[in-house]
Design a protein around this nucleic acid. Sequence first.
DNA 1: TTGAAAGCGCTAACAT
DNA 2: ATGTTAGCGCTTTCAA
Lengths: 336, 336
Amino acid sequence: MSIILKDIAEATGFSLNTVSRVLRGDKKISTKTSEIIKSKADELGYIPNALASSMRNSKSKIIGVISVDSSNTFFSSVIKGIEYCASKNGYHILLANTEESTTKEAELIRMFLTHKVAGIISIPIFDNCPQRIQMYKNLPIPYIFIGRFVEGLKNHSILHDDYLSQKEIVCNLIQKGHKKIIYISGPDNASNSHIRKKGFIDAFNENGIKLQNEYFLNSTGHIEEGYSLINRVLHLGLEFSAVVCFNDLIAMGVLKSLYENSLKVPKDIEVLGFDNIYSSQFLQPSLSTVDVPKFRLGNIAMEELIKHIKNPSLEYKSIEINTRIIYRETTNNNNN
Amino acid sequence: MSIILKDIAEATGFSLNTVSRVLRGDKKISTKTSEIIKSKADELGYIPNALASSMRNSKSKIIGVISVDSSNTFFSSVIKGIEYCASKNGYHILLANTEESTTKEAELIRMFLTHKVAGIISIPIFDNCPQRIQMYKNLPIPYIFIGRFVEGLKNHSILHDDYLSQKEIVCNLIQKGHKKIIYISGPDNASNSHIRKKGFIDAFNENGIKLQNEYFLNSTGHIEEGYSLINRVLHLGLEFSAVVCFNDLIAMGVLKSLYENSLKVPKDIEVLGFDNIYSSQFLQPSLSTVDVPKFRLGNIAMEELIKHIKNPSLEYKSIEINTRIIYRETTNNNNN
DNA sequence: TTGAAAGCGCTAACAT
DNA sequence: ATGTTAGCGCTTTCAA
């Protein structure tokens, strides 16, 4: 059926081995031989068998990528960055979603191992389940975490600054006189939910303002929740003058709810998101947020991973990327 | 280093073959033997080698997925559907982007072949370059196209109805009295750009209204263009009372521009998108659009592909999924 | 510069 | 019910 090295060898009269060497670009082959073999390979439509080659030399050009939800706009940008960098370097990605399940994450790691991937990039679920951490520690291949860190494996993470930006945003609000600020937090199983929330809390503490429980709203980070949570507190009559959201999606829902309730943004209520997803600048009003370089995050993760694949003894070091606050139209920016 | 079948064979005293059969769940093995071997495999932390197994029985559980841009929210939903269905059936996806390049698409196909994938799902670039079509025709493995069709290979496509919905939308506008409707078209290299545009044109023709060239605006389907194109025609003083967009992203940009130019939607201008992406219903005003079942599209494509993998002699048949017009707040819906 | 032989880890065919 | 043997297509010794 399909053409294999042996066919080319027989067709050209050279040995199978010589053919293999030519096609891999091995030195020590006469130009003439090389040309003959290459053109015959072309003519026969030879397609190399990566499985056989991987098996023989235990090298693979495939990277396993674990994400929670590849359709989330944040992750899909990160994954695009990963894919782009992988492709540029001759690697390819095997993509799978955990759907928030730790069991699934463990299965995926095992699956990747089964498929002999060269390395793994993971946007892991945040729980400190020791078995899972151990699973990563036992990996015989390089691995990198993106955007979240796993207890005890911080060196493997490409992070972005969540804390400072979140705190600065809130300090800014406080300086403008806001005291009743709602914070809608993100999913518990993402490490940056906790970090951002801490940024919010610390801003209050550093300014000596009391925090009240009813101003903390929990969400899993989806639009609908921003919408329904604000509807609810409005209905309950909670007073507030600003809403700080774990991410832009939540902020979109918040904006919608405020609009429907005839509250003007930013005049009555200021709103801030986080992530700077693609559509944020095109909202009405455009969303003030924190830019997280998503594509770059993926890119850097992949670059780092490749370094570790090429040099397995390389020490891991945690990398933190800066974020950047972008004040747009959902905040009063007179003082900026 | 890593545990292989032979290690388990030696540790249990059974033959390598028996071990293999137990671990694959082959019948004709005594329960006792099976238990001994399984527990030893667990104990040793055995991880099967999919490469070796694939090589031996030329079966693979990997599907190649080709998309133009996996970070586009439309595609990322489709891909999620693919991945979900794949995972449910024990398959995994190798994902790669063509970045609009035909050359890249050809390379990817070759790469997938090299990696011995079981099948390919492609969101192909739309050009009738005969070499590329031939490339698909020559594929020794099953393949399915999503959302677009390739000349001469229509049976391989999972399509969604673009034409009827687009036409109906426009007929509706015309019935409401609109005569000056801007159409912002999508990228030339997507087959549905052409189909949707035809729907728009036919609506005019069937209602006996003349089409004017300046009402056709070309775009590649991104937000920015919706924004800048409308800014431009407004600047030029073109009169219009409705904007029909190839997709929701464009419509978002349009909305932004209209808003900034103090034009009220839908009072002054009605706006329609297409695709019903996740955020559309949360825009202000929420976007009237056509729902395309993205996740389901991916799901069905994968299901079909699996059928063909399991039964290679199965005839291909084109599948068309219905779309559904959703009138929200960017249109005047009194009459609906 | 080229060739012969061994073997990666597994499964299928055949034997017992 | 279990074992023996061959071989998937390739690359890596080692030899010439």
